[in-house]
Amino acid sequence: MANEAAPALIGTSGDSLREAFGKALSALADEFPKLVVLDADIAGGTGVHHFRKSHPKRFLQFGIAEQNMMAAAGGLAAVGLIPVVTTFAVFCLRAVEQARLSLAYTRRNAKIVASHPGLDVGPDGGSAQALEDIAAFRAIPGMTVISPADPVETALATRAILEFEGPVYMRTGRSPSRRLFGEDHTFKIGKGQIVRDGSDVTIVACGVEVARALEAAQKLAGEGIRARVVNMATIKPIDTELLTRCAEETGALVTAEDHNIHGGLGGAVAEALAATVPCPIEFIGMKDVFGASGEPEELATVYGLTAPHIASAAKRAIARKRK
């Protein structure tokens, strides 16, 4: 499955993760008759305008009132429906406590799908860029947290969360996403995937950073460094088995995420390895600062989330290995 040649970057498809999610929801609606979609006046932004058009009766408008929407999802689930709460990641933050009590503590079969995470939001600026959502939702007992990397994986993950019984938080994305995977791609909640093999260092990434990690690995290969890339689309429960294998086989790791370096993917990886196979880890992400307006690629450059940043971090991690 994993070899150095694959997967090739298929280039920008112009298809964002939010679009892939919205289309997938529409396509799955007949197969999941209990599915209802909750919106807070940003269906066009989250991709669920597709669902609104295809299944208007199962599209529930809550207005700009995320706390009520989040808790109401608990009520919809309580009477046997599968509610999918949709809004921007930053607005999910204002309803974290509703997700905690009315979805997670009650173990409802409800899904939260958040678009516009991290710097991927771009020009809307720092106020709109959620850098804390993975940390916040990961800290809620029993909450599954997913961040797919490309449109194909997003569609697969959309099906997977509907088949899964229990509360889930999933991040999509705003900007046009690079296609990483072919139609033969698979997705399983709780399983990371080695998308490029290597033996010197492992780059563990999620979301938009997977494409950048692959770029970084290619760059490192030119310098004679063999970097393994893991697409860790499920951040919770984290794939500890795969992480320990990577730590044993490569001896150093880099984590990369469009999120604060505190409490997100990096935190999850560090927790898992500290308890199993401790090894040097370098963290790529927002370094406990807020973002600003700019195009996502410009912001990634300014805040240190690009392929060259990941490649440098990989070298630092390798240098820290025990001699």
Binding site: N68, M70, A72, G75, L81, L101
Partner: peptide, 30 residues
């Protein structure tokens, strides 16, 4: 989860009424 007949968990004020809204919408939908 301790007492199914209480229908939902409450204690954080404001949430129960939203849960009830969701139940009412869901019952009507069905």
């Amino acid at each position: 989860l301790d007492l199914p007949w209480v229908e939902t968990s409450t204690g954080s004020l404001g949430q129960g009424v939203s849960v009830a809204i969701g139940m009412a919408m869901g019952l009507k939908l069905q």
